[in-house]
Amino acid sequence: MSYVVSFILAIVSYMVIDNVILSRYFGICSFIGVGNKVKSAVGMGLAVTFVTMMAALVCWPIYTFILVPANMGYMDTIVFILVIASLVQMVGFFIKKKSISLYKTLGIYLPLITTNCAVLGVVQNNTAYDFGRSMANALGTSLGFVLVIFLFACIRVRLEGANLPKAFKGVPIALIVAGIMAIVFMGLGGIIDLGSWGLI
């Protein structure tokens, strides 16, 4: 199997089939919390994409070339979370300096991203793969995050007007909608036989 094909398949599988929110349960807090505004959902998604890509880019070399040779693989979680926290901080400063309007759209989500499991989850997972595949994982995961958080926000806008039982208003119906979305995404699992490509 050529490397390019495996790269593309990894992106597609992480984006749709093994979706980060609906099948791996990463980042549900921000998924539920971002609510029913399509614009802020997309903003959050883009900010997560950016930080995940940067974190994957920085953490993989640190783990492979510093922690493993120094025989300190057990320090991975501490190092990764520090890298992510400082990255988020720096990205905040940078955006603020360069474009104040972008900061106003993305800035409020930045502190939330440190505690988004998607970022740490991807980086932690990547230690088992090579560099190209790690970047594919990061890209696929973040695209999957954007896709689902956008669809979900659109659905929640429609739910606003729905006549729900009082007890289901708010978070409960959001979770049930997410469950139904997960069933839909499960149906996409048959498109690619991941096992035959050696991806699982």
């Binding site: 609906l22 099948s23 791996r24 009082k166 007890a167 708010g170 409960p172 997410a178 469950g179 499960m186």
Partner: peptide, 18 residues
């Protein structure tokens, strides 16, 4: 499966709200 987790938690929260 993953969908079941969302459904169970959603219904649990709805029952508590009720």
């Amino acid at each position: 499966s993953s969908a079941g987790g969302f459904l169970v938690l959603g219904f649990a929260l709805a029952i508590i709200a009720a």
